[in-house]
Simulated scan of single mutants.
Amino acid sequence: MAVDLEEIRKMCELLMVANQGDHFHALGIKVTDIQRNSIAMELGYSDDIVGNPETGVIHGGVITALLDSCCGFSASTALDELALTPTIDLRIDHLGPAEPHKPVYAVGEVYRVTRSVIFTRAIAHQGDVSRPIAQAVGNFSRMEKGTFTDFRHTMLTAYDQIFGEDA
């Protein structure tokens, strides 16, 4: 049985807004597409995420957080049940600076699943996927089945409380 992608959407939406102090909310990361084994995200430009005020270039750590999130949520789409997938290892290649005042898009995909590890990759770009500004390869834990049974119920209940049952 495969995880319900609607539940993944709800988990992503909840995590993006529920904790006002976390990096999803602080950076303004948004999930724009969810497919089996793939997630797409968008990071809007703001002065708050600039690493160099003289050039307006987005901080590399922000791009790293975007790619880690994109790979991790992609890994969640490959599961049998709703769960989180902790990062084991992540490599980021920063290929060039993001242009100031433009959003950054990321697309992550799962390319292999084993009993205990989910292998992912992602690219960050600004509208042209053939010209990435960064790329990532990440390995994520596939936790033992049943580990997140209570998580699913708690997450869906919190989602309904925040967004309403019909959201």
Rank of each mutant, 00 (worst) to 15 (best):
Thr77Leu: 14
Ser69Leu: 05
Gly108Met: 03
Gly56Trp: 00
Glu109Gln: 12
His101Val: 03
Ser74Asn: 02
Leu82Phe: 15
Gly60Asp: 01
Gln35Glu: 15
Asp47Ala: 11
Val50Trp: 04
Ala40Thr: 08
Arg91Ala: 13
Thr85Arg: 10
Asp80Tyr: 14
Pro103Phe: 09
Thr77His: 11
Val50Phe: 02
Val107His: 09
Gly51Lys: 03
Ala78Gln: 08
Ile34Pro: 11
Glu42Asp: 10
Cys70Leu: 03
Pro53Asp: 01
Pro103Gln: 07
Leu90His: 08
Glu99Lys: 15
Glu54Trp: 00
Ile63Val: 14
Tyr105Lys: 07
Arg112Ser: 01
Gly44Asn: 14
Ser69Ala: 09
Val107Lys: 13
Ile39Arg: 03
Leu67Ile: 03
Gly44Ser: 14
Ser38Lys: 11
Pro53Thr: 05
Gly28Asp: 09
Asp68Ser: 06
Ile58Asp: 06
Pro86Arg: 12
Leu82Asp: 13
Asp48Met: 13
Ile63Gln: 02
Lys30Ile: 01
Ala26Ser: 14
Ala40Pro: 07
Gly72Ser: 07
Gly108Gln: 06
Glu42Thr: 14
Lys102Met: 12
Asp93Cys: 05
Asn52Phe: 08
Leu90Glu: 01
Val62Ile: 12
Pro100Lys: 10
Lys102Asn: 14
Ala83Leu: 07
Arg112Trp: 04
Gln35Ala: 14
Ile63Ala: 03
Val110Ala: 07
Ala65Thr: 10
Leu67Val: 01
Ile58Ala: 09
Pro100His: 08
Pro53Gln: 04
Tyr105Phe: 13
Ile63Thr: 08
Gly51Leu: 00
Met41Arg: 08
Asn37Ile: 00
Ser46Phe: 03
Val110Ser: 05
Val31Thr: 01
Phe73Lys: 04
Gly61Asn: 13
Glu99Pro: 00
Tyr105Ala: 09
Pro86Lys: 07
Ser74Asp: 05
Gly108Ala: 09
Asp80Phe: 12
Gly61Ala: 09
Thr32Lys: 11
Asp47Thr: 10
Ile88Asn: 07
Thr77Cys: 12
Asp93Met: 00
Leu82Ala: 10
His101Arg: 15
Gly72Ala: 07
Cys70Trp: 05
Pro86His: 10
Gly60Tyr: 04
His101Ile: 04
Glu81Ala: 13
Gly51Tyr: 05
Ala75Phe: 03
Leu79Trp: 01
Ile92Tyr: 01
Ala26Cys: 13
Ser69Met: 07
Ile92Lys: 06
